[in-house]
Design a binder for these strands. Structure first.
Length: 664
DNA sequence: GTTTACCTAGTTTTT
DNA sequence: CTAGGTAAAC
């Protein structure tokens, strides 16, 4: 634990100290990669508490991922000891959920509103499209969902969207958006973007609620500000308006989420929003060697729409960047595996000091094969997210329906999982029956249990539902009623899950299945039950799992090389980094080649990747690779040619034969 | 209503 | 190439 200010400031450079000690008013910290920005942010919070400027209760610290939030909490606990848990350290989304769980009823939502993830949203959009007779092949649900998401990130509701819709696509989206949003509201559900938008609406509609939080959260600190979207920025401005103790930290060069609505202008225009803001720039890098830093600086300098900035280091030059040209992606992967093994055997690195980055998840495949063959341990980070697995989503859907009977998407999901003789036809009949009586699907099913032989059953038959389907429904209804009862009696979510597994035969089905994947699924199920047991409330558990991504718990992958996308790599660092697939069309991605703005985002992504490396950086590409089963020739990434030649060395095995050279 | 076999279309990044 | 959807058979 830290006792004095001196102790806290020890080891920080003068600029960092300034950021930590700043008092009174808005603060913008422009922090380059590896300049210790997270440390500054953490120290600043500790400093606020230690000097009595703030109480833990009045601090809101926003991080980009739950993992970052967890680490920050841990560090703060180590520095300050007990009391830290009263602080809000979370992502925007988690903070919003926390607020909404208290006040959502003011806007007509259930306190136990459901959170829909991207897959749920897509399903709902699909259903809406079908209801509106829109061809889902011509206008894909995913595209529409993305457009709606973008609108929400800009806090554009469906009315305004409809007003300003341009062209046939947007007009179609406008229709879908309106219906989609009505369905969300009537099922008391929110998608990811709603969490932000509804919170903003809440603050606007209920000024007293806003004031409550303004009074409470007197110090607002936000990390990775370059990746905030309009809605997030708005929330920060609203909360910070009163006390103006807003501190944002970020680096415009590391803005890599524009495709998701992030807007660099939020950080660039912070000083306009807060004209009295103090600006501090952290430009000394403590992570990478000089060679790596110079190379990264040289690459990012090619972005024209950028405020020039140069990171510097007092560290040594280090090894050159290793460039490797492979015949194809398998040779490339084999090279990485071999070199990783050599680094471990000869250079004293541990496998968990090593990471391989790629542009798209699909690229991990060749790597996995090569590493298995070479017997080098690896772990793919964040590819198939735990909470997106079918079995996990199925089980969670049961809990969601228990918590929120209005949740239609989840109700539809579980009606016939596991099979209980209710196919599409019965489902639609049931849905119509529910609609006539003005109930949500989940509520209608539950009502069946209350009236086994009375009107419920008769109505069902009148609705044309077969005996077989009806008995399946009754069984489900009984289960849901019992689960809801258990929940009220205070049974843990874990107990509820076990009940679901036993009563539905879900567990048995997996146990009886003879496939390998069934075993993995059983393990996932067991893990989910384990997670659920740690929670005492259903709402807490469901909120928490809805917002946790797999990369959040990548915690200490011991003794294994990590594979991940460049996006996942943000915020991490490794002794040695391999960036593979440095081919034009792969990275930068094909779809960005004709758009200068997108190309600049790709370049920032490259910059992020390069600056993750502490001492060794490898960049590899292949002359030929299989894309969708057919062979494609590629030329080296333009990013490679942007690195000064004197910083680069070609690896052994490299040959110029049969391919183009590096353009200069 | 469920299972199977085909066929097709789609391939970026994610809180 | 492969995941997902669809059309046909059980």
């Amino acid at each position: 634990m830290i006792r004095s200010e001196e102790e806290l400031l020890a080891g920080l450079n003068p600029v960092q100290r300034e950021a930590v000690r700043h008092r009174g008013g808005p603060l913008l910290v422009v922090a380059g990669a590896g300049s210790g920005k997270t440390r500054v942010l953490t120290s600043r919070i500790a400093h606020l508490i230690l000097t009595g400027e703030a109480r833990p209760y009045s601090v809101l610290a926003i991080t980009f991922t739950n993992k970052a939030a967890g680490e920050m909490k841990e560090r703060l606990a180590g520095m300050l000891g007990p009391g830290v848990e009263r602080m809000w350290v979370s992502t925007f989304h988690s903070a919003c959920v926390r607020i909404l769980r208290v006040h959502a009823e003011r806007l007509g939502y259930s306190r136990s509103f459901t959170i829909y993830d991207a897959a749920d949203s897509k399903r709902l959009v699909e259903r809406v499209e079908k209801a509106l007779n829109i061809d889902t092949k011509k206008i894909r649900a995913q595209t529409v969902a993305a457009e709606i998401s973008r609108a929400k990130a800009e806090l554009v509701d469906f009315e305004s969207y409809s007003d300003r819709a341009q062209g046939p696509f947007q007009q179609t989206v406008a229709r879908v958006y309106a219906d989609y949003q009505k369905r969300l509201a009537s099922s008391s559900s929110m998608d990811f973007d709603d969490l932000l938008m509804v919170t903003a609406n809440l603050f606007e509609a209920c000024p007293d609620v806003l004031v409550t939080y303004q009074e409470r959260l007197q110090h607002v600190l936000v990390d990775e500000y370059q990746d905030t979207n309009f809605a997030q920025n708005k929330l920060v401005l609203m909360l910070g308006e009163k006390h103006r103790n807003v501190c944002v930290v970020g680096d415009a060069d590391q803005s890599i989420y524009a495709f998701r609505g992030a807007d660099v202008r939020n950080i660039l225009q912070f000083e306009e929003a807060f004209p009295d803001a103090t600006k501090i720039a952290l430009e000394q890098n403590y992570r990478s060697t000089k060679v790596i830093l110079d190379a990264a600086n040289a690459v990012i300098a090619n972005n024209l729409s950028r405020i020039p900035k140069d990171l510097w280091t007092e560290g040594s030059a280090g090894d050159p960047i290793m460039r490797y040209r492979a015949a194809d992606e398998n040779v490339e992967a084999a090279y990485v595996a071999t070199e990783a093994r050599r680094l471990a055997a000869e250079e004293g690195l541990f496998y968990n000091d090593i990471a391989v980055f790629y542009r798209a998840n699909a690229q991990s495949r060749a790597l996995e094969e090569a590493f298995s063959l070479a017997d080098v341990p690896y772990k793919v980070v964040g590819a198939i997210r735990f909470y997106e697995r079918k079995e996990v989503k199925d089980l969670l859907a049961y809990l969601k329906v228990v918590a929120n009977p209005a949740d239609d998407v989840s109700a539809r999901r579980i009606v016939n999982v596991p099979r209980r003789g209710i196919g599409d036809t019965s489902l639609e009949k049931l849905a119509r029956w529910a609609a006539i009586s003005g109930r949500a699907l989940g509520a209608a099913i539950t009502d069946l249990a209350g009236a086994p032989s009375e009107d419920g059953a008769d109505d069902l038959q009148a609705a044309g539902i077969t005996k077989k389907a009806a008995s399946g429904l009754a069984e489900l209804a009984g289960l849901l009623a019992d689960l809801r009862h258990m929940d009220q009696e205070g049974f843990s979510p874990g107990k509820l899950l076990s009940e679901v597994l036993d009563r539905t035969g879900y567990r048995k089905e997996l146990e009886d299945a003879q496939r390998d994947e069934a075993e993995a699924r059983l393990e996932n199920v067991a893990e989910l039950v384990g997670v659920a047991e740690r929670f005492s409330s259903l709402d807490d558990m469901l909120s928490s799992v809805a917002l946790v991504s797999d990369s959040d718990d990548l915690a200490q992958i011991e003794g294994k090389v990590s594979f991940m996308t460049l996006h996942v790599a943000k915020g991490l660092e490794f002794e040695a980094v391999f960036m593979i697939g440095m081919d034009d069309g792969v990275f930068p991605h094909m779809r960005s080649l004709d758009d200068p703005r997108e190309l600049e985002e790709e370049r920032r992504l490259c910059y992020v990747g390069m600056t993750r490396a502490k001492s060794r950086l490898y960049m590899t590409h292949a002359l030929e690779r299989r894309v969708w089963g057919s062979e494609t020739y590629s030329i080296p990434s333009r990013f490679l040619s942007e690195i000064p030649e004197e910083l680069v060395e070609d690896c052994r095995g490299y040959t110029r034969r049969g391919g183009e050279g590096y353009r200069r």
